[in-house]
Amino acid sequence: MAKVLGKTSILSACDHSQKKNKKGGGSLYSRRIPGICFKEDRFTSLKMKSMALRCDFNGQRVVYLERKIVDTRRFLQVPLKVQLNQIRTGLIGKTPKWWETGLQPNMKEVTSAQDLVDALFDAGYKLVILDFYSPACGGCKALFPKTCQLAKMNPDSQFLQVNYEEHKSMCYSLNVHVLPFFRFYRGAQGRLCQFSCTNATIQKFKNALAKHTTDQCSLGPAKGLDEKELLALAANKDLSFTYKPKPVQPNPYRVPAKKDILVSKTCLNPKESEGKTLVGAGG
């Protein structure tokens, strides 16, 4: 291998695969090295050439070499389309964000209001935890590793992540104004609790998990969001979400109110009511 000697750019030439000098027959330079080329103009006189050829370093001939100046600007001028294609094809590695590292199989990113509603309905009797976060929130970033750890410890629960920066309008409709913010849902019971939690008050999150992760019987289909929240999402023009209110069915076992009882008593004797009306009219 060739070695660089100080600032004079003198490299020791290998004895094998050397090329012969046409004039003197001696070894003038070694095999081509990437990024390095010879410039014979540096040898201005025969005396310098003879000194270079007679100079020995560890028993090897040395010659003057000069590095090529590579224009790196042409490598940096890459079109934007080419860079995007390289990213799509995986040629350039994409560094994951902090809210993407450490994700568990039971953690999912919410993409829209319809996706949120469908995820709550499809969860069935599972415990669902809504995690509202922001990429610019320091408290969310500090709490996220512990959230991933708790998700790993509770594989039967479903964790849904809602990016506040991407879904601000949806968060306003759901009355979420503090971050990080959590909501717990389960089956037909709907929303169980909601609270704001930080890294210092992580015990609040653990207590809620211990309370609501126990096996509970929930009759009926999953409720998901409240009726008011569904109507608020449907009324929001920024969201492509449609919702039709369910028709209210009368309850046959409903206890009649006092007004209904009084009306029914007055209508028991129609003759008395007719007489009263006639007397009133005649008077």
Score class of each variant (00 low, 15 high):
V4R: 12
V4E: 02
V4L: 07
G6T: 12
T8P: 00
L11W: 01
S12F: 02
A13H: 06
C14Y: 11
H16L: 07
K20S: 04
K22D: 10
G24E: 13
S27W: 13
Y29V: 02
S30G: 11
R32I: 13
F38G: 09
R42F: 12
C55T: 15
F57L: 14
Q60W: 12
E66N: 04
R67G: 06
T72G: 01
R74I: 12
L80N: 05
V82Q: 11
V82E: 14
Q83M: 10
N85V: 01
R88K: 15
R88F: 07
I92M: 09
W98D: 03
N106G: 04
E109V: 06
E109T: 09
S112V: 05
D115T: 05
V117D: 09
Y125I: 08
K126M: 06
L127S: 05
D131W: 00
C137G: 04
T147N: 02
C148W: 05
D156F: 00
S157H: 04
S157C: 14
F159P: 01
F159D: 06
Q161L: 11
V162C: 09
V162F: 02
Y164S: 13
Y172I: 08
Y172K: 14
Y172P: 00
L174T: 04
R183Q: 14
Y185W: 06
G190W: 15
S196E: 11
N199R: 10
T201D: 04
K204N: 05
F205M: 11
A208T: 10
A210E: 14
A210G: 07
K211F: 05
T213P: 00
T214E: 13
T214A: 09
A232G: 01
A235I: 02
K237H: 07
K237I: 01
S240E: 08
F241M: 06
F241C: 02
P247I: 14
Q249C: 07
P250C: 07
N251D: 15
P252H: 14
K258P: 00
C267G: 07
C267L: 15
L268H: 15
P270L: 05
S273Q: 03
K276A: 08
G280S: 08
